[in-house]
Each structure stands twice: as C-alpha cells, then as structure tokens.
C-alpha cells in the first residue's frame, strides 16, 4: 500500500547523512578517456568541419543518404521532363500511339 504520509515521517539526520555518503560513493567523478579528450580537441581545432563529422554519425549519415536519394530522383525527373519536351511532348506520344494502333 502506498504510504500517503511518507513526507511526514520524521527525518533522521544520521540516516540522511548515511544516504548522502552512499550517494557520494555511488556518484564518483569518472574522467573521460584521455584519447577521447585529445581526439575531440583535435577535431575542434580543425573545426571548419561540420558537426556531422563527429563520433556517432548515424542520424546524420541517414539524412545524407536520404538527401542524396532525393537529389537523384530530382535529377531523373528533370532529365525525363527535358527529354519528353525535346521529343515533342504529348504530340509525340499520340503519334507513337497511332503508329502502334495501325501496326497492331
């Protein structure tokens, strides 16, 4: 059962001090790996490189692939439309259809 009056329990200073020392022991500072610090420092120094070239590039690389894919589709569309216009557009299509109909 939930203790609705947990906040009203008397505060035992000794218990709190013990909890604080437990927390202190659990939350010890952990220094970053030296090699990581140096590596990041070097990357920051050559910092015209965009942030996407950093450690975990997963989300950025996915985005790059999607953008490259979109650019490719756009290119195909542009080339397709240009060729369609160059060939005479719908007029050329109807000529082709008529020829196919007569051949068939």
């Amino acid at each position: 059962m939930t203790d609705l009056f947990h906040w009203a329990k008397p505060v035992d200073d000794q218990e709190m001090a013990q909890l604080e020392s437990l927390l202190q022991a659990a939350l010890m500072p952990v220094p970053p790996r030296g090699s990581y610090q140096k590596d990041l420092r070097n990357r920051l120094e050559k910092s015209d490189a965009p942030a996407i070239e950093l450690h975990s590039t997963r989300p950025y690389s996915v985005l790059l692939w999607v953008m490259a894919g979109l650019a490719f589709v756009m290119l195909l569309l542009v080339v397709g439309i240009k060729s369609f216009i160059a060939l005479g557009g719908w007029g050329a299509v109807s000529v082709l259809r008529r020829r196919l109909d007569t051949d068939g």
């Binding site: 970053p32 790996r33 990581y36 990041l40 990357r43 920051l44 910092s47 942030a51 950093l54 450690h55 975990s56």
Partner: peptide, 18 residues
C-alpha cells in the same frame, strides 16, 4: 554509458563552438 556520453559531450562542445 560511455559511448553515448562521449558522443553527446562532443555535440555539446560543437554546439557551443558554433
């Protein structure tokens, strides 16, 4: 975990720098 901590620390400093 260490890997995400390294990744996010790097991002903090890149963001700060920019």
């Amino acid at each position: 975990n260490q890997h995400d901590a390294e990744d996010l620390t790097a991002r903090v400093f890149y963001r700060a720098m920019h």
